[in-house]
């Protein structure tokens, strides 16, 4: 997939992975990986970016005698997902247009 396209998709996928309940780094990777390639080093900057944009919040909690960071989606984050779904309609229209061009050739 194109890098720019993938970058935008990854942000939304990570938000979607924490949409239902708070999640942590490794679980986010496991949840997202079946759909789009993601690694630890890819996830870190995404989490930081989303945190800076206030689309998610971070809290630290104890787990098995160590600390683990949990990520929670904010209302702005939820709105971002909804906005993406709306953009999707435009993307579908563009896809239709591209495919039609293809057909004419």
């Amino acid at each position: 997939m194109d890098i720019q396209l993938k970058r935008g998709m990854l942000d939304i996928c990570v938000l979607a992975a924490i949409k239902g309940e708070d999640s942590y780094g490794y679980k986010i990777i496991k949840d997202v990986r079946p759909y789009i390639d993601i690694s630890e080093s890819t996830l870190y900057p995404i989490l930081r970016r989303l945190e800076t944009a206030e689309l998610l919040t971070v809290r630290t909690a104890e787990h098995n005698g160590r600390l683990r960071k949990y990520y929670r989606i904010t209302d702005a984050g939820k709105r971002r997902i909804e906005a993406f779904k709306e953009e999707w309609q435009e993307l579908l229209a563009i896809y239709g247009f591209i495919s039609k061009e293809d057909g004419n050739d």
Binding site: G25, Y26, K27, E40, N64, L67, R68
Partner: peptide
């Protein structure tokens, strides 16, 4: 921050 992050990732894989 990076060290904590990667430490957590390794621990979670071990837990897994």
């Amino acid at each position: 921050r990076y060290v904590d992050y990667y430490s957590e990732m390794i621990d979670d894989r071990v837990d897994d």
